[in-house]
Design a protein around this nucleic acid. Structure first.
Length: 516
RNA sequence: GGCUGGGUAGCUCAGCUGGUUAGAGCACGGCACUCAUAAUGCCGGGGUCGGCGGUUCAAGUCCGCCCCCAGCUACCA
């Protein structure tokens, strides 16, 4: 089964103790672009997102809200499903860890790990705060002047507590993990994260506590139901629950191993160390790639709830429009790096890249065609060197963008498309079709055909990033739905095809002036 | 402290294995054009490439030392 056609991409499942913010929107957006691109490129795509609904924090938050845990998670999980619609994401399914099939998958995986001899009963020990009902590691605590140890973050007194816990023999997997990283250089991206993970594993691994007895909202350990599975074992398993695990005859099993787990840089260890170890121990193939993206700051400031500067994606979309926000998030920052969000930068991108460069290119081209070429695709005559140069660049774009998308280099993919857009704007000025209208109409028509064709190719590639806007432009070029996949990339516009009236797709954003 | 990555025009960044006058986008100034969303195109100003020393015919690009920034250095997710 060498070159399979399936493509499985996942977001992390989002922890439902919080409302969605721009970080969630960003991660899912990146996956959405991958999924849409691969579908257009003819792949059999499965795109999964969902919510992580277990754990002590949820149990506590639900109690505080006066709700049963399930009722609480039903409610908060919904806000993540609402975001899917708001951001025009295209997941094939939305998984929840409270689904019965997920319990079955987790318990099956657990049993497999037990059978393999990788799980044993031991004792978990740590600094426990009764008030917070939470364990803290040594570094999260400090001893005060009264010689009592307290949690640094909450100030609550902590005591050394030991409870029985099952452990996963992670320590036994360091060498095999290092070998796996070595043999699969693309497993962790970007490169800097790969270095971090490798150096972490090289430093030696301790066994991992994978069950708790201090709370009950979670998946019971098979055969010892006082124990609840450690949240990460529970959460990570969602990726294979979706494919039917442990039933490998499930039709969705063909998607495993996942082609890409998209994660934020904070949870890379779980995905790049624990997860492959769990899977290898259970004789399941590890995923092919984990990409850890960076964080956003807000106008140069670190984002935090206490600062109150959390960015609400819904507000952004309502203010600037969906596609401009999608474009900005993936264009502004080299994917993988941290980036700064600022209104000025967003408006700059919207006006310079979308309204002025791309939108205006479409508008100036299409309105000439509408006014002077009889509202149909113009006749294509003999091509000059200038025509061929532009068309060749547009033709080469698919290969270039495909390469960048394979690396999740969204900003580079967009830059490449926008270089062709800039070339097209230069071409319009150089050819001056408005002057040709007075001297050589057939030549003018050829120029307009070259422009329309260039816009078509660029726009096909814009689709994964800005689906609605791209669709509007392709509508204006009368490209039928079945010719919008990349299989039709070389199917050029047919002269004579009737075209609808052009309409601007990316209006400039003008800031509301304060009332004078 | 250790490890990793980075410090290049006002801002954001490109600059493979060292080689003509160090590039792009945005911002700024001037000019041109008028098809277009006061959009587009052309030209221009502006950088001792973090600092010091070294290797070399030649270093932003290699070596050494130093300064500054970020991330990682395990079980809240």
């Amino acid at each position: 089964m060498p070159d399979r056609n399936s493509y499985y991409v996942t977001t992390p499942i989002y922890y439902v103790n919080d409302v969605p913010h721009v970080g969630h929107a960003y991660t899912t957006l990146a996956c959405d672009v991958m999924a849409r691109f691969m579908r257009l490129d003819g792949r059999d795509v499965h795109f999964l997102t969902g919510t992580d609904e277990h754990g002590q924090k949820i149990e506590t938050a639900a109690a505080a809200a006066g709700l049963a845990p399930q009722a609480f998670t039903d409610k908060v999980s919904q806000s993540f499903r609402d975001l899917v619609a708001k951001m025009n994401y295209s997941p094939d399914n939305f998984i929840r860890t409270t689904e019965p099939r997920h319990y079955a998958a987790c318990q099956a995986l657990w049993q497999k790990l037990v059978d393999a001899g990788d799980i044993y009963l031991g004792k978990y020990a740590g600094w426990y705060s009764v008030r917070d009902e939470t364990y803290f590691v040594e570094g999260e605590t400090e001893v005060g002047p009264d010689k009592k140890r307290r949690a640094t973050s909450t100030g609550a007194e902590v005591t050394w507590v030991e409870e029985p816990s099952y452990f996963f023999k992670l320590s036994a997997w360091a060498d095999r993990l290092l070998e796996f990283y070595e043999k699969n250089p693309r497993f962790i991206a970007p490169e800097s994260r790969r270095n971090e993970v490798i150096s972490f594993v090289k430093g030696g691994l301790q066994d991992l506590s994978v069950s708790r007895t201090s709370f009950s909202w979670g998946i019971p350990v098979p055969g010892d139901e006082k124990h609840i599975m450690y949240v990460w074992l529970d959460a990570l398993t969602n990726y294979i629950t979706e494919c039917g695990y442990p039933d490998t005859s499930n039709p969705l099993w063909k998607y495993w191993p996942a082609d890409l787990h998209m994660v934020g840089k904070d949870i890379i260890r779980f995905h790049c160390v624990f997860w492959p170890a769990f899977l290898m121990a259970a004789s399941v193939a590890p995923p092919k790639r984990v990409f850890a993206h960076g964080w956003w700051t807000n106008e140069g400031q670190k984002i935090s709830k206490s600062l109150g500067n959390v960015i609400d994606p819904v507000e952004l979309v309502d203010t600037y429009g969906l596609d401009p926000v999608r474009y900005f998030l993936l264009r502004e920052v080299p994917f993988g790096n941290d980036g700064d969000f600022s209104r000025r930068a967003l408006i700059g991108r919207l006006n310079a890249d979308l309204a002025n460069a791309y939108g205006n290119l479409c508008q100036r081209s299409l309105s000439i065609i509408a006014k002077s070429c009889g509202e149909k695709v113009p006749e294509k005559g003999a091509l000059t060197d200038a025509d061929t140069a532009l068309l060749d660049r547009a033709r080469g774009l698919l290969g270039v963008v495909r390469g960048e998308i394979d690396d999740q280099a969204f900003h580079k993919a967009l830059t490449a498309i926008w270089e062709v857009i800039a070339d097209a704007n230069r071409y319009v000025d150089a050819q001056a079709p408005w002057a040709l209208a007075k001297t050589d109409v057939p030549r003018r028509d050829t120029v307009m055909w070259v422009l329309a064709e260039t816009i078509r190719r660029a726009t096909l590639l814009v689709q994964p990033f800005m689906p609605d806007s791209a669709a509007k432009i392709l509508d204006q070029l009368a490209v039928p739905a079945e010719d919008r996949a990349f299989a039709a990339f070389d199917k050029e516009l047919a002269p004579g095809t009737a075209l609808p009236k052009p309409q601007g797709v990316f209006p400039r954003f003008v800031e509301a002036k304060p009332a004078a």
